[in-house]
């Protein structure tokens, strides 16, 4: 993408077992600060499952822990915004 930031999805090595061939996919986010350092975030995204019949299915990998954490952060921010709005309304009346 650029020297500063790069986001890409990479496919891992396919593994076959029985009738299934599994190919994992991972997303990598790279942020570089030239001469100062950088940051890399790698996460699993999905798995491609291929059957011998040629059928393909993509199974997403859901990070339940992160979803729960973001849910609580969202709830906290919502409560903060609600309290702030209600306080402003009560001050005006």
């Amino acid at each position: 993408m650029s020297e500063f930031m790069n986001v890409e999805i990479q496919a891992g090595e396919s593994v076959s077992i029985g009738e299934h061939t599994v190919t994992p996919f991972a997303q990598s986010v790279q942020i570089r600060f030239p001469g100062m350092g950088g940051f890399i975030w790698n996460r699993p995204v999905s798995v491609l499952v291929q059957n011998k019949d040629g059928e393909e299915e993509v199974l997403p990998i859901i990070d339940v822990t992160r979803q729960a954490l973001f849910g609580f952060i969202g709830l906290g921010l919502f409560m903060f915004a609600l309290t702030w709005i209600l306080k402003r309304i009560s001050r005006k009346t």
Binding site: G18, H20, P24, V47, E57, L59, I61, T65
Partner: peptide, 23 residues
């Protein structure tokens, strides 16, 4: 850890790994 991919003759499934302490 995020998830475990389990492939068996019954099919392929993704089992999430939940961190109850963090939650």
């Amino acid at each position: 850890p995020v998830a475990v991919i389990i492939a068996s003759p019954d099919g392929v499934r993704v089992e999430p790994i939940v961190d109850p302490t963090k939650i």
